[in-house]
């Protein structure tokens, strides 16, 4: 019995010695964006008792995947409300998985919004449009929350740019999102081009967009893609750029 007491004492002393180290290591993990999930009672309500216990037991990612599969089934049954609840659970459990934010936004802003616009149970078009815009906003909210959780990645800025342009017609917002995406060292080169393309659509910013496009044009032949050339051509016309200063002339105008 004495030996067991001494062993227990050693465990407690070791526990006291390792405590500051564990606490510091835990803080370092958090600082490195690890384990961002907030395992609180709000989450327990979203994912149920079993899922919450599993998430607490180190199976957070598997619980998130199971919820994602359930959301996929809900999508097939067009249960948009249920999908939203499941997406919230998934993104809370795995806030650092960009894919979940991206796909949640896509489901809301593209799929659910399309369904809302065509909803046969809603005869009033104004209400259908209102519901559609609400889903666009939900998509935007997912992307913005995803960016807050993943400020070190370009992907969600890129997706936000697409959503703002395609669904909300916000070209200035799209330009800003693509510009931010292009500032990441691992971002593809087309982010810069897309930023310039959408800035060209913003009234009053055409000159700025033209300068950006010319700069890209001078970066080399690999940047001189058909869309870029046609945008330069259109802006030259729109801004009345003198003939001698034009850098691109459409082949049909060359004779």
């Amino acid at each position: 019995m004495k030996r067991y007491s001494i062993a227990l004492l050693i465990v407690l002393l070791f526990g006291a010695a390792k405590l500051p180290f564990e606490q510091k290591l835990n803080e370092e993990h958090r600082a490195s964006f690890f384990r961002g999930a907030k395992l609180d009672l709000g989450l327990r309500e979203q994912i149920g008792q079993g899922g919450f216990i599993a998430a607490l037991s180190g199976f957070r990612s598997i619980v998130a995947d199971l919820l994602w599969i359930q959301a996929n089934t809900a999508w097939q049954n067009t249960e948009w409300g249920r999908m939203k609840v499941l997406f919230d659970g998934v993104t809370t459990l795995q806030p650092r998985v960009v894919l979940f934010w991206d796909m949640s936004a896509w489901h809301m802003a593209w799929n659910a919004s399309r369904w809302a616009a065509d909803n046969p149970k809603q005869p009033r078009e104004a209400l259908r449009i209102k519901a559609q815009r609400e889903y666009f906003e939900l998509g935007r909210q997912y992307l913005e929350a995803g960016i807050r959780n993943n400020p070190d990645r370009y992907v969600l800025y890129d997706r936000l740019g697409i959503l703002l342009k395609d669904k909300l017609g916000d070209y200035l917002g799209a330009y800003e999102a693509y510009k931010k995406a292009s500032e990441f060292p691992d971002a593809p080169a087309y982010e810069k081009r897309f930023a310039a393309y959408y800035l060209a659509e913003v009234p009053g910013r055409e000159r700025e967009a033209y300068d950006m496009l010319v700069k890209l044009y001078h970066m080399g032949p690999e940047e001189r893609l058909p869309t870029l050339l046609s945008k330069i051509y259109a802006l030259q016309e729109k801004l009345n750029i003198p003939q001698e200063q034009r850098i691109y002339i459409d082949p049909k105008d060359r004779e």
Binding site: L25, F33, Q94, R96, V97, V98
Partner: peptide, 12 residues
């Protein structure tokens, strides 16, 4: 502290 895989799979 030993659950690093979740975050590594997430791209960290």
């Amino acid at each position: 502290l030993f659950n690093l895989v979740d975050d590594i799979v997430a791209g960290n």
